[in-house]
Design a protein around this nucleic acid. Structure first.
Length: 473
RNA sequence: GUCCCCAUCGUCUAGCCUGGCCCAGGACACCGGCCUUUCACGCCGGCGACGCGGGUUCGAAUCCCGCUGGGGACGCCA
């Protein structure tokens, strides 16, 4: 019998949940779901000075928005202090840890000195064999790491990675204020929580030997490790604010669909043949660490945009309507208490969804449909609504007025007939009508616009444009 | 500086493990054309890569070594 897979995502709540973090979460989630295992969420808030509640809220909101559901947690390390304390005591008892009285300043000085000499800036072991315990002097607790030998990490993605123990030093596991540090709690937690696979960013690879030693020291079996590559900005440096939006919620606010973001991030480093677009089910079914690359990937906003467009095009109108609604409100196209049904909002979507890459872009394009009063593009109105076109618009008014119900085919027939009689190319008729009905020169197909607006509104707007032409003289 | 990781079109990638099917395939972007009532969508075509140098082999993008380049780590941050 094989042990069930158990993975975790362990962000630190010190800022926004960013793109890189989400991809790590996603790979863990996919791995868990693929294997029918469990996905644990753990908040690494051991740094009291930098962790914030807002950040935790944002992490949870981001995960929910993306649909990355977790099976256990969120656990918070600040609530697990007694567990860490116990483990530190265990190490102390077994002489695998010791107090260190060196001051931060001292350490800092030595580090710089070593570095300037071209040496590895590691702890020199001053307190390692010190037997006296000065009273009232603050101290940290260090893990006593082996001086010789080597640690081999069996990385699922990279194979064996060997680190010489002499490259490592005695890391601090307890700060002078008594709180535990990351490298220690991560081991205690992953071990204690029965995590089977640690899938995390490449930047943790060099921490892994220290952690492996800690597992050994604590008498816990090491989990399997898989270090995925990092996401870089266009300049090939680690993705950061400098590269523009990196927080997940910023993408939500820019009108990206969660499915599109997930799909994009999944394809950053993972592939399944030549397939670009995946449903979640397909991702889960096909996900495998074997198809994850080890080289770093540059984040490409253009491709994300394209994917978002694909998702917008293919989304169910009703579903998209729900996602579009907040943007309509934000843009002032609908009021907060518009009282419209999802069906009503969904109505123009089939004619709009081929024309927008983001929801932010889509919202204003629907103004003509939602707003009672048209906002005209002045230049367009001056150019297209003139005396020449007036009689033809009037002809349309008469004809449409006689129709019982508007249909695409009959509308097309009517427009073509009127254009022909006027010896105009269809576009010469359609464009002024478009301006009259939508206020601008770019819109869905003109017959769709008429159908969307309905008989009453269409006639009203056409009549208003005739009035406008008369007034301008 | 030291250690570790990585290296296919501008970008994401397939192929690499199990050499020949690859004078390297797909996608985004870009360029050109078609479609067309506007804007788009769509369709067709084009541009474009195995970092360099050595080996191994009948044969290397694929295996080995070196170099170069990029990234990461070296905190009482995570």
């Amino acid at each position: 019998m094989t042990t069930p897979v158990r993975v975790r995502f362990a962000p630190s709540p010190t800022g926004h949940l960013h793109i890189g973090g989400v991809r790590t979460a996603l790979f863990n989630w996919l791995f868990a779901r693929h294997h029918g295992g469990q996905f644990v969420l753990r908040i690494e808030d051991t740094d009291a000075s930098r962790s914030t509640e807002e950040s935790i809220d944002e992490i949870l909101a981001s995960m929910k928005w993306l649909g990355l559901d977790w099976d256990e947690g969120p656990f918070r390390q600040t609530e697990r202090q007694s567990i860490y304390k116990e483990k530190v005591d265990q190490l102390l008892r077994e002489d695998k840890a010791y107090p260190c009285f060196c001051t931060a300043e001292e350490l800092d000085r030595k580090r710089k000195e070593a570095q300037s000499k071209g040496l590895k800036p590691k702890y020199d072991g001053t307190c390692r064999n010190r037997s006296d315990k000065p009273e009232g002097v603050p101290f940290v607790t260090r893990f006593k790491a082996p001086l010789e030998g080597a640690v081999t990490i069996h990385d699922l993605l990279r194979g064996n990675v060997v680190f010489q123990n002499e490259e490592l030093d005695d890391l601090i596991i307890l700060r002078s204020d008594g709180t535990p540090t990351y490298n220690f709690v991560v081991v205690v937690d992953d071990g204690g929580m029965g995590i089977t696979h640690v899938i995390r960013g490449d930047d943790h690879l060099s921490n892994t030997p220290r952690q492996a030693l800690l597992y050994d020291g604590l008498g816990m079996p090491r989990p399997k490790f898989a270090h995925i590559s990092m996401i870089l900005g266009a300049d090939k440096t680690r993705l950061s604010k400098r590269h523009g939006a990196t927080s997940v919620l910023a993408y939500r606010d820019m009108g990206y669909l969660p499915d599109a973001l997930i799909n994009y991030l999944a394809r950053l480093g993972w592939s399944h043949g030549n397939q670009e677009i995946f449903t979640r089910q397909e991702m889960i079914q096909n996900f495998s660490l074997e198809n994850v690359t080890t080289s770093a990937a540059v984040f490409n906003p253009e491709k994300l945009k394209w994917l978002n467009q694909q998702y917008i095009q293919n989304a169910a109108p009703l579903d998209l309507a729900c996602q579009l609604e907040p943007f309509l409100i934000k843009e002032g196209i609908l009021s907060e208490n518009h009282g419209l049904s999802a069906e009503k909002i969904a109505k123009p979507i089939p004619s709009l969804n081929q024309r927008a890459e983001t929801l932010v872009e889509m919202a204003p394009k629907s103004t003509f449909y939602f707003k009672e009063k048209l906002e005209f593009d002045e230049k367009a109105r001056d150019k297209f609504l003139n005396a020449d076109i007036k009689p033809h618009i009037e002809k349309l008014i008469v004809a449409i007025n006689e129709m019982d119900n508007l249909e695409h085919d009959s509308m097309e027939k009517l427009f073509k007939q009127v254009a022909e009689e006027a010896k105009l190319k269809l576009g010469k008729l359609a464009q002024p009508v478009r301006v009259a009905l939508t206020g601008g020169t770019a819109s869905p197909g003109i017959y769709d616009v008429v159908l969307l607006l309905g008989k009453t509104t269409t006639l009203k707007r056409l009549t208003e444009s005739v009035d406008f032409i008369e007034k301008r003289g």
